[in-house]
Simulated scan of single mutants.
Amino acid sequence: MDITLIKLSLIDEDKDQPRYQFSQDALEELANSIKEIGLLSPIKVRDTGDGRYKIIYGNRRYKASQMIGLESIPCIVSDATDEMDIYFEQIAENLTREDFSPIEEAEAFHKLMNEDGFRSSIKLLSSKLGKPESYIKNKLELLKFGSAVKKLIVSGTQIRKDCLTEDQLMPLKDLPIEFRDSLALTAARDELPVSDVKKIAKLFKDKSISDGTKQKLLLKTGSGLIETWSVFEQNRKEKLAREKQQQEEARLAAERKAAQVAALEAEQEASASTTKEHAESSGAQYGEATATAAATPITQNTHLQLEGNYIGAVEADDALLPSNTMHAVSLDKANYSITIDHAYAEAEALLVQLRNGDMQQLDACEQLSNDMLIKLQQLQDLWRTIMRESQA
């Protein structure tokens, strides 16, 4: 690498190079250092072909040397001619400098990605500059802010009055533009820590707060906004607690209702099962009693024995009784009618005894009448079956 002394009068600045912000205090400090110990690092230039040179990097050293009146400075002369390669080299060199501002980086990345002659992808920038893609994307987010905010962006993480770090700005980057810049300027003025900026951003992102209310909040100071956030957060937590309690109460009520329904269904099922068993048992008992009664002709002085006791005489018309037994009845209409008449005759006999006061065992009477009703229902169902079969 050859180093050549070149007169300052033959060197031109590159107005399109990535770095353009220079602190006057920093320049004066650098100039005093060069005056005392000399320029320790040469600048890099390229030959423009007309006897002049254009700076690739080293603008600050060039300016500081001018300030102290140097006639010549040491330079590295590059033979590079490709504009993209030169620009990549300028960015790479400046990325190593602490005073290369984040907004200068962002604008350089944007230029490489969007201007004609470059049109680079984030992937290419990442590989060329040795920076993660996320690093480049975050820098590009800074370009969302207005010029007033961009002028305040500085390197590093130290919070300073009327300055903004990247960490302070990142929580605000996705807010609508009508809130974003105003809140950024408030953060710079009031030296808000990043944690407070995050709380304020959360407040302005909440959709339950109207835009009109948010516009009024912009008039508050940073401390006023934090106080508003605290009240809002407390109300939000209380609301969530109430909703959770209501949900729990609704869940318990639903469980109680389900348990009641299940208990009622179980009770109905048990009741139905008991009724069915009782009906089947009563039907069987009545069938046996009826078969016996059918086998024995009933006359006016005949006595029926129920549950082992005589309960009185039964009055009935012998002409209505069948001459055969109940179990011999077939499923034709004629025999079915005789069976029905027999049942009615027994019922009439019971009614006579009740009216005459001859029935002493009321429980036995009630049981027999219930059994007869069940049997009549069975006979009715049987008749419907016969009718359906006859119509088929």
Rank of each mutant, 00 (worst) to 15 (best):
M1S: 11
I6Q: 06
I6R: 12
I11N: 06
E13M: 10
F22K: 13
F22W: 13
E28D: 10
S33K: 06
K35N: 09
K44M: 10
I56G: 13
N59V: 03
L70W: 01
E71S: 00
S72I: 02
I76V: 03
D79V: 02
D79G: 03
D85A: 13
L95G: 00
L95F: 04
D99Q: 06
E105M: 10
E107G: 09
N114L: 01
E115F: 01
D116C: 03
K131I: 03
K131Y: 01
Y135E: 04
I136K: 07
L143Y: 02
K150D: 10
L152R: 14
D181A: 09
A184D: 11
A187W: 05
L192Q: 03
V194M: 11
A201T: 05
I209W: 03
D211C: 11
Q215M: 11
L219E: 14
T221V: 00
G222F: 00
R236W: 05
Q245L: 08
E255S: 12
R256C: 03
Q260H: 07
Q260D: 13
Q260C: 13
S271T: 11
E277T: 06
E288H: 12
A293I: 10
A293W: 11
L306Q: 06
G308C: 04
G312K: 12
G312H: 11
V314D: 02
E315I: 09
A319Y: 05
N335R: 10
T339N: 15
R355A: 06
S369Q: 11
I386M: 15
